[in-house]
Write a protein that binds this DNA or RNA. Structure first.
Length: 204
DNA sequence: TGCCAGGCCCTCTTTAGGGCCTT
């Protein structure tokens, strides 16, 4: 697999447009199917953490108050991932926060996101659902720690990506999984997955 | 009081509606 950066945000809500801010981010670099570098930090954006978010994630107001400023963390994580292609589970969510938090420090995203949830819907159509935790159990992925914390979810997404690559290699004899192929697969109609991959292999 | 975003996908569709998924 080509070298990719996988990220996951914990936030105070669902939309930066509604005032939600990031509370934690994790990123890993996946190289040849192995996690070779980690970045993880809580961040203080100067907002209160709603009670139900603390219940969900375990992230408290005290933890955020003691964390480095959001601007410092975003500069660090943006430098950490550099121009590597980005991957996230339900990437439309993380892309919104990545773009919003980066814009606050005067930076803009240079690369595209690929989405493991959209690809998993096609690769694992019989999974009970396509939540990250459900897919981890369905594919019997290694335990990565407490769900709904940024590094645990980031590592789980990395394991899911590797498992999907193995599945696609076995099922369709693809050579390897690239970011470009992920971007194609996430837009293919579920029923067209097989024919689309075969066409891509023939064209390669 | 009740509701709250947005992109994607499916279908009893396309001049739409509702479920999924993320926090």
């Amino acid at each position: 697999m080509e070298t990719l950066a996988i990220i996951d945000f914990e936030t105070t809500g669902l939309s930066p447009g509604e005032g939600a801010r990031a509370t934690e981010i994790a990123a890993v670099v996946l190289e040849n199917g192995q996690i070779v570098r980690h970045y993880q930090s809580l961040m203080n954006a100067g907002v209160r953490v709603p009670f139900f978010i603390t219940n969900l994630t375990g992230i408290t107001n005290e933890m955020v108050r003691c964390a480095p400023p959001a601007a410092k963390v975003m500069q660090e994580v943006a430098d950490f991932v550099g121009d590597l292609p980005l991957v996230a589970h339900n990437a439309s969510f993380d892309r919104k926060f990545w773009d919003a938090e980066l814009s606050r420090v005067g930076r803009t995203r240079q690369q595209e996101f690929a989405c493991t949830m959209l690809v998993a819907r096609r690769v694992y159509p019989t999974a009970p659902n396509h939540k990250l935790g459900t897919l981890a159990a369905f594919a019997r992925l290694p335990d990565t720690g407490k769900a709904h914390r940024a590094m645990a979810d980031t590592e789980m997404t990395a394991h899911l990506l590797c498992h999907m690559e193995e599945t696609l290699i076995q099922r369709f004899q693809i050579g390897h999984l690239s970011h470009a192929l992920l971007r194609v697969l996430q837009r293919v109609k579920v029923a067209d997955l097989q024919s689309t991959i075969r066409k891509l292999i023939r064209a390669a």
